[in-house]
Write a protein that binds this DNA or RNA. Sequence first.
DNA 1: GCCAACGTTGGC
DNA 2: GCCAACGTTGGC
Length: 155
Amino acid sequence: MKHWLFKTEPDEFSIEDLQKKGSAGARWDGIRNYQARNLLRDEVAEGDTVWIYHSRCKHLGLVGLANVLSAAYPDPAQWDPESPYFDPKSSLDAPRWYCVDVAHRETFSTLIPLAKIKRDPRLQEMVLLKQGRLSIQPITEAEAKVLLKWTQGNA
DNA sequence: GCCAACGTTGGC
DNA sequence: GCCAACGTTGGC
């Protein structure tokens, strides 16, 4: 059971939006970066834990948890000419982009700010801090333990 | 909203 | 297959 960090811009799709989807969850689509795609397609599994991160907004940080409902499947948006995620170079027999379904589990009563993560010596190796521009990224078991401690009593 | 960093595209 | 131009991400 792995831990992942999924970034989202709350102006586009926030944890509140995810919560409104209930147990049916939401399709996490529109991933158009090969490194993120490879992680989604090859490593993200049903039952994994997703830490939702709000990026490009006033309150940057981890805002809650979600469950992965399905292993990756081809993102239908890549074949929809009306979609902003349409990719004319992707064919039906060789899908280029993948997505997963996730369901809201919990919203933290107080977010874990990016600044707090940056300050903790145990979290300096987080992909979040090491590498920008990656919207799907792994969180190690040790990192997750630190983060989980911070959420205790916050649910 | 700015802009640095970085991934992608496409001409050569 | 190089690399300049371009587009996007994402913290500030």
